[in-house]
Amino acid sequence: MLKKRIIPCLDIQNGRTVKGINFLDIRDAGDPIELAKRYVEEGADELVFLDITATNEKRKTLVDLVEKISREINIPFTVGGGINSMEDASAIIKAGADKVSINSAAIKRPQLITEIAKQFGSQAVVLAIDTKFENNEWHVYSNGGKIPVGLKTIDWALEGEKLGAGEILLTSMNNDGTKNGFALDITNKISQQLQIPIIASGGAGTKLHFKEVFEQTKASGALAASIFHFGEISIQILKTYLKTENILIR
């Protein structure tokens, strides 16, 4: 049986992990490679590296880092953050990333999804959508959640699938950082209506939240950053718990 994926997200700035925890046996929590390896050992099913530097001068640092990750990590990983063009995507994939995640650039120029999918396959394109519930509807935001785009989330997700995205990474801005759980309603709606896998993101605070999102939606995976970084939940303990709750877990 296909398993649900647990996906830690690492925020990267100038080639370093930000808000890293201090695992006792990690010498340098700011080293993305060490932290990533630790997550792999704990049983992470996939990793996401989100570059929050996203300035052109720092691009090279990111590509170097992706090469290093690819040499050291034996599970799939996605790289996102400031990927604006085919050239950006190509450099990251050629450096060894399995997938690129695109967000604002796809809103600006939806054709970018198709271009990357044609060149590298749909499985390599993750459409990241930041969504916010207001006035009784889920809307899409761009530029790190700063700018309302004027699109309904369900419409943009369906459009992204049609354009060739292989997966949707759905982050609820209402839930992100609250630790009150994932946005079950929109995650369920989108995962019911799309054919491609949906990764739920934003709001994970307890083990129960992961159980909920897998029981109450068709999400294929769940992503979290801070609860793993700060060691509030270890991936190993989370996965053991989910197994005892009869969720299909590796």
Binding site: K3, R5, S122, G166, Q195, I196, P197, K218, S220, G221
Partner: peptide, 13 residues
Amino acid sequence: PPIDIVPHMGWNN
């Protein structure tokens, strides 16, 4: 056949 999510993506035994 498109009766479940396609692609088959992830860990399976």
